[in-house]
Design a protein around this nucleic acid. Structure first.
Length: 554
DNA sequence: CGCCTTTGACCTGCGC
DNA sequence: GCGCAGGTCAAAGGCG
């Protein structure tokens, strides 16, 4: 349990304090005023810690209770879903069912209206509000509606796809035969474990390096080691496609393809396939931790504002959410225009960083998105690239990008952001709201800034894809570890230690000291260094792939 | 010398 | 079955 892991140090601290207290009584031979003072202060501190611990325990028990409640609801929902499916088109049954349902109009509020997504709830005998499958997916469901033809995940006709492909001037990867466009509302989340399909993650990133069409494509540095094993000129694209294999570990099945977009040579398309059979280098896992939630969110579905979502607000559900602005209608997301397609053999997730979102597309002040319901505990992720100046680049300003995992209790907490790597007295304390109110939509703006920064950093994009593949590969445990900084030095989190590739990676993420942590804020992970120059160090003499600037100009 | 990239040949899957 | 295109292999050469 993450929360327990997070609080373990507190308990330990308490025990140590008690031990100290005991020694203080038994070991005292003669009174020393100075020692008394220290003892007193230690006792006071211990009492504080105890109180803190009590609060944390209370919060934990509440979270556990909520979690079990959610689990119970989920387990009761899943059979309902299975039962319901064959009945969907059975009028009599569905009508009868319908009469017991409280229909809700859910979705994105726009112009005072609510975009409807199919969702309904039902009150059980116990008076609990049960959300049926579609209700559960309400935060994830973004099905196109008739009045919303621009829904980003809408099913496209073959003609439309052809047009898009032709427009992009490239062939899709996987090659053609896109049978189905995955919609975030779909329950069959594409994962490698599903139906034996392999999952590919494709990243479209703008790379302004003046390599119009290089025949020496070099992969973006994403923390992994790649060996080129082939190159092929694909039909319809004058630029060759380069094939790389992960060499970070022998036998690692991960491969990636790098190709420039025929339509726009400044766009680089990197496609990853497979799951690393080895732990990702810390430089990659740091990114992975940042992006894992986003990746999972991407897999699970898009967003609906909790604020504007009556179902999530009801019944006191402590539903995990992601603070994550976006307007599905505009296909604008903090995550770049994600789309998922599936072929017979594999599913491809495409992250389009080439067209970074603009804050103008994020009209909501606190758009939130629910995390996948299968996360192990209630938690909320806040992608928080905010500085006081929301328009500032979250990387360039300080070289730090914060992200957090926090238990939320109310909406205000959801909206709280952490400063990006701020070394204040209590860097993990939420920024005062006033700081976030420098614009009317601080979250939207700051995330927009972050996204733009991401879009400007191919390395990050590449790492994101690596992260996504890792997530798809079921490395949830690793991600959980990352969330809580398990992998990092518990003694001195700020002290760098060499990673397996010589990275001083363990300092990239740290966990906040629990004694300075506001229990209401939860634990916070943050990368200490995410500036690209510090983040991506060369691993060996063949470091050219690590440096985009070394791309050969043709 | 070891590891990398290059590159032509070969393999495989799919559509016609 | 044939042709096409994507993907992979492996020998050759380059580089540090």
């Amino acid at each position: 349990m993450e929360v327990m892991m997070a609080w373990a140090p507190v308990v330990k601290e308490e025990k140590e304090a008690e031990s100290l207290d005991g020694e203080g009584h038994s070991g005292r031979i003669e009174k020393n005023p100075l020692e008394d003072d220290r003892l007193e202060s230690a006792r006071a501190e211990m009492g504080e810690v105890k109180r803190e611990n009590e609060r944390l325990k209370a919060t934990l028990s509440r979270i556990m209770k909520d979690y079990r409640s959610l689990q119970t609801q989920l387990s009761s929902i899943v059979p309902q879903e299975q039962d319901k499916k064959p009945l969907e088109k059975t009028d009599s049954n569905s009508e009868r069912e319908e009469s017991e349902l409280v229909s809700l109009s859910l979705g994105v509020v726009r112009n005072g209206e609510v975009e409807r997504t199919a969702a309904s709830t039902k009150t059980t005998e116990k008076g609990e509000v049960m959300i049926n499958h579609e209700g559960l997916s309400l935060g994830m469901d973004c099905r196109p509606t008739e009045d919303d033809p621009s829904s980003w995940s809408r099913e496209k006709s073959p003609e439309e796809r052809k047009e898009e492909e032709a427009d992009a001037g490239e062939l899709p990867w996987p090659p053609s035969k896109v049978l189905k466009t995955w919609r975030p509302g779909d329950r069959e989340v594409p994962q490698q474990s599903i139906h034996g399909k392999t999952t590919r993650v494709s990243v479209r990133a703008r790379c302004d390096t003046p390599t119009v069409c290089t025949h020496h494509l070099r992969p973006m540095n994403d923390g992994c080691q790649w060996r080129k094993y082939g190159q092929k000129v694909a039909k319809g694209n004058p630029c060759p496609r380069a094939y790389y294999r992960c060499t970070a570990a022998p036998g690692c099945p991960v491969r990636k393809q790098v190709q420039r977009c025929a339509g726009d040579m400044s766009i680089l398309i990197t496609t990853y396939e497979g799951t690393h059979s080895h732990p990702l280098p810390l430089s990659a896992t740091a990114m992975a931790s940042t992006t894992s939630a986003a990746a999972r969110m991407l897999m699970e579905g898009p967003l609906v504002s909790r604020q504007q979502n009556p179902a999530s607000a009801m019944a006191g559900l402590h539903v995990p959410i992601i603070s994550f602005p976006g307007d599905p209608r505009q296909r604008r997301f903090p995550l770049p225009n994600p789309s998922i397609s599936s072929s017979l053999s594999h599913t491809t997730i495409t992250l389009d960083f080439a067209s970074p979102p603009s804050s103008a597309y994020w009209p909501y002040s606190a758009q939130t998105c629910r995390l996948p319901s299968n996360l192990p505990s209630p938690s909320s992720f806040t992608f928080s690239p905010s500085e006081a100046n929301p328009s500032s680049n979250p990387f360039s300003s300080s070289g730090h990008l914060s992200f957090g995992v926090q238990e939320y209790d109310d909406q205000s907490q959801v909206a709280r952001l952490f400063g990006p790597g701020r070394r204040s007295q209590d860097p993990f304390r939420s920024q005062p709201d006033s700081q976030n109110n420098t614009s009317s939509h601080p979250l939207a703006d700051t995330v927009a800034a972050a996204t733009e920064a991401i879009a400007a950093d191919p390395s990050f994009q590449s790492a994101l894809a690596a992260a996504v593949t890792s997530v798809l590969g079921g490395q949830e445990a690793l991600l959980q570890k990352l969330r809580w900084g398990e992998q990092f030095s518990p003694v001195s989190p700020f002290e760098p230690s060499l990673g397996e590739n010589g990275y001083a990676g363990s300092s990239y993420l740290t966990r906040s000291n629990s004694s300075t942590m506001n229990p209401q804020q939860g634990d916070v992970l943050r990368p200490l260094q995410t500036s690209t120059s510090a983040f991506w160090g060369p691993k060996n003499g063949y470091a050219s792939p690590e440096d985009n600037s070394s791309w050969e100009h043709s």
